[in-house]
Design a protein around this nucleic acid. Sequence first.
DNA 1: CGCGGGGTTGAGCGCCATCAATTGGAGTGG
DNA 2: CCACTCCAATTGATGGCGCTCAACCCCGCG
Lengths: 224, 224
Amino acid sequence: MYVTISNEHKDQAFYEQTTETISHLRPIRAACGKHVFREGDKVDRIYVVVSGAVRLTRLLEDGRRQIIAFGFPGDMVGFPSHGRHHTDCEALTTVQLEPYRFSSLENGTGDPVLHKAFVQAALREIAAMQDHFVMLGRKSATEKVASFLETMAQRLGEPVGNYRQISLSMSRADIADFLGLTTETVSRTISLFRKRQVIALYGAHTVVVLRPDALHAIANRDRG
Amino acid sequence: MYVTISNEHKDQAFYEQTTETISHLRPIRAACGKHVFREGDKVDRIYVVVSGAVRLTRLLEDGRRQIIAFGFPGDMVGFPSHGRHHTDCEALTTVQLEPYRFSSLENGTGDPVLHKAFVQAALREIAAMQDHFVMLGRKSATEKVASFLETMAQRLGEPVGNYRQISLSMSRADIADFLGLTTETVSRTISLFRKRQVIALYGAHTVVVLRPDALHAIANRDRG
DNA sequence: CGCGGGGTTGAGCGCCATCAATTGGAGTGG
DNA sequence: CCACTCCAATTGATGGCGCTCAACCCCGCG
């Protein structure tokens, strides 16, 4: 998942299209905190998240970390580069994944419907990453956090009364490493939104969006 | 082009593989400053840069700009999202482009060799963008500029005496919008490298890398 | 020679990182 | 049920990197 307002989240379509075929393998599970794969691993299958959440990360030698993306149900993860994984993939919660043999996807020898869905997923991935560039390169801390919460609400929010509620499966540090900020800044910014009554918190991981319009305005216009 | 040290730049392979087939259309030209395509345009063909350079950009409503990538000879540009272009593409110099019908690439009905090359190009694009995330999100201004110059030298540098020389086809503002900085910061950082004799300048657009090792060290380790 | 646009350099400040202390909440054992 | 532990999250204080605003330089061009 990338922070993209116009995300129609079509990977779900991939999952729905293909679960009826015989091309997929048996679902796998990973417990919270476990690796699904690591950078450098040979890629023989790629995955569609069925339930739970994962994070894709890259590390610098000195310990700095960048979270490339979060994977939520419907997302495809594990696109290879030169036949190898290019990020680590860790489970944020207990997670269920649907594996697909990569070789058949790559060279088109398998199910053509599956193959086309794979190509479409890769193209959507590119477009979503392009949008994420704008956020990393050109948005302020408040804009980043607001964009993140807005996207999460659209993608994973559940109606509660008149509002939408989000259950964040990742830590503040994860959010920070995704947005190119520090945990302190993320925490401060979320506190600010709470004080302004844009959101409400029940514990650190449950967010209720009280004023989606205000959140949207902050996500796009604010520069401070 | 993204700033990736380990970039083996295999898109050249695509170009070489496919120029002998009959699948490609007649090359097109665009003069410096002209648009090759615009965000929102319907995608019926995608392009491989033959000569010259282009920039791929996205804009925010308030005028902030992010350059998604530069396209140099061998690079494939124009990956669509939902059938439409997702960035603007402008010529930085007079540029020659080799167009390919996208429909045949997408659904695999055309040349299978071409199709596989297209899928590989998309996967490389994803991997390169992942690396670029780390730079946008986690590197300091000096690291960014040093990484940029290093990559440009590897990609486009020509041996001059014992050194490698780069001809930058983009302005300082373009570099800034690519790295998520301002023109002033880019200019100051380049001046700093010149003062430290890591590089030399002949005019604003010709750079000679005097100490590649120092440049590499700054690109990866420095945090100030 | 005047003009204009890109590039460079300077001064000052603000956003966000850094360092540090405190709070809170989940899990554990008595 | 409470005390204790541990780590995530919050909050505070301070400083610095990079942005902002502004002046100046350089150079191509009419």
